[in-house]
Amino acid sequence: MAEYHINLPLTKEDISLLEAGDFVYLSGTLYTARDAAHKRMTETLEKGEKLPFDINGETIYYLGPSPARPGQVIGSAGPTTSSRMDKYTPRLLELGLKGMIGKGRRNEEVKAAINKNKAVYFAAVGGAGALLSKCIKESTVIAYEDLGTEAVRKLRVEDLPVIVVTDCHKNSVY
């Protein structure tokens, strides 16, 4: 069980290094998307259209934040349950998605796709949204604004604490 500070986007070397159970502090840019955004992204792909951001090499945080008070970057910002995204995830991994941050179990299909596409699944601590919000330095809605909390946001994070649940070597904490 090692501890790393890693800059986003993740490199091939970073992903290969990480093992299930490792503590990682992530810094850099990532995107938020949860249930409704995943559904809409999948519908977009089915229509043959482009996703609202280039997913290749990127990391998605399964997050629907609470609203920011005046002067705050974002409100409470912890992870939501990842398994609800399982239906949509293998397709996004095929398109080059490299990192996912959420909480809880993934199905076997997602685990196999993580291994096949050399990606990594992290968990942040569920229910620690106030603490995690302090790691978010910038937040901009870039798509699906009508979805409110479920819109796609581009975030800049500093030392976001996560734990590797499923690495690219077929190991998983749960």
């Binding site: 997050l63 629907g64 934040p65 609470s66 008070r69 705050q72 409100g75 409470s76 910002a77 912890g78 939501t80 601590v125 569920g126 229910g127 620690a128 949204g129 106030a130 603490l131 919000s133 302090k134 909390t149």
Partner: peptide, 14 residues
């Protein structure tokens, strides 16, 4: 997290 939530009026969980 509980302390930050209480002191800075950020919901405990999103």
């Amino acid at each position: 997290n509980m302390e930050i939530a209480k002191n800075e009026s950020i919901p405990i969980c999103q």
